[in-house]
């Protein structure tokens, strides 16, 4: 069997190879499975395009055009009430900061209650975890609305909403960090004859602190994003301005506000990067 050429492969050759290496032509079962799964995916998509009336996209060109042109064509920039905008943004950042701070403090306690190695009683651990599932399972906006109903319109509801979401998220992440702790380092400290306070100080804290700090910094950034939209349900911050001006058709101003928020979030991202680098070093989270 010397030099071969593709053009010289005859149907007989194919038959011969099929005989000697039948699997090389694909497992018919696997092929059916593959075809079936693709059919399901594509079939589902087509069905959902129909169900959700994707065709409406093509009827919307006029409105979409109006919207897009207003977003990019900024008019009457002198009358945009910048003071309101920046007070709103400041309020949003403040809500996020305070909410994350309170969330962190609560999560510090609850995280230990939800971790296997620090909470020996399974009943309590599971109860705590289910409660955290409830906190996390309900979106921040929904919490916002709930708290608006409970304590009235304004940033207090927003802070509470961020707080409860952050308790849910951070506690879970903290408890995972606690569970992933390196036992050997703790044993090492204990072996020096340290008392419990020192075991925590030198065995646990150095391992946990960087992770906790990093998680809380990330949480601050993502809370700022969620705080932006809390105003949509009246829970304070710049979201109230966004929805107000959107409803009034001032899309250019909405675009301006969103642009400003994106810049603020980028700055927070950059700042938390610096802090992370200072306390944690390059390895990050």
């Amino acid at each position: 069997m010397t030099a071969l050429s593709f053009a010289d492969i005859t149907d007989d050759d194919v038959r011969a190879v099929r005989q000697s290496h039948p699997q090389a032509f694909g497992d018919p079962v696997m092929r059916m499975v593959r075809i079936a799964s693709w059919t399901i995916v594509i079939g589902y998509l087509l069905y959902s395009f129909h169900l959700f009336e994707f065709a409406k996209i093509f009827d919307s060109s006029e409105r979409a055009w109006r919207l897009v042109s207003r977003i990019f064509y900024w008019q009457d920039m002198a009358s945009w009430h910048y003071d309101q905008i920046y007070v709103g943004i400041a309020q949003t950042v403040a809500m996020a900061f305070l909410g994350t701070f309170l969330g962190t403090i609560f999560a510090l306690g609850i995280g230990f209650l939800a971790a296997k190695n620090t909470m020996p009683f399974g009943v309590i651990r599971h109860a705590v975890r289910r409660l955290l599932d409830v906190f996390r399972g309900i979106d921040g906006v929904v919490w916002g609305l709930v708290f608006v109903r409970a304590v009235g319109l304004g940033p207090l509801a927003g802070v509470l909403a961020i707080w409860i979401s952050d308790v849910g998220n951070l506690s879970k992440l903290y408890s995972e960090a606690i569970e992933n702790i390196d036992r050997k380092q703790v044993e090492g400290v204990r072996a020096t004859g340290a008392d419990p306070a020192r075991i925590i100080r030198y065995g646990y804290l150095p391992q946990i602190f960087p992770v906790f700090l990093s998680l809380s910094l990330y949480s601050f950034e993502s809370s700022t994003r969620s705080a932006t939209i809390l105003g949509l349900v009246g829970a304070g911050g710049v979201g109230m301005i966004i929805i107000e001006r959107f409803r009034a058709g001032m899309f250019d101003q909405v675009a301006f506000v969103v642009l400003n928020i994106l810049i603020v979030i980028a700055v927070i991202d950059w700042g938390s990067g610096l802090i992370r680098k200072r306390f944690i070093g390059e390895r990050g989270h």
């Binding site: 959700f52 409406k56 009827d59 409105r63 906006v141 939209i229 966004i242 929805i243 959107f246 969103v258």
Partner: peptide
Amino acid sequence: VPEILFALIFVFAVGIG
């Protein structure tokens, strides 16, 4: 841009739903 903001925009463009 958060989902809900995009949603606001698309509700305007393609209608409620």
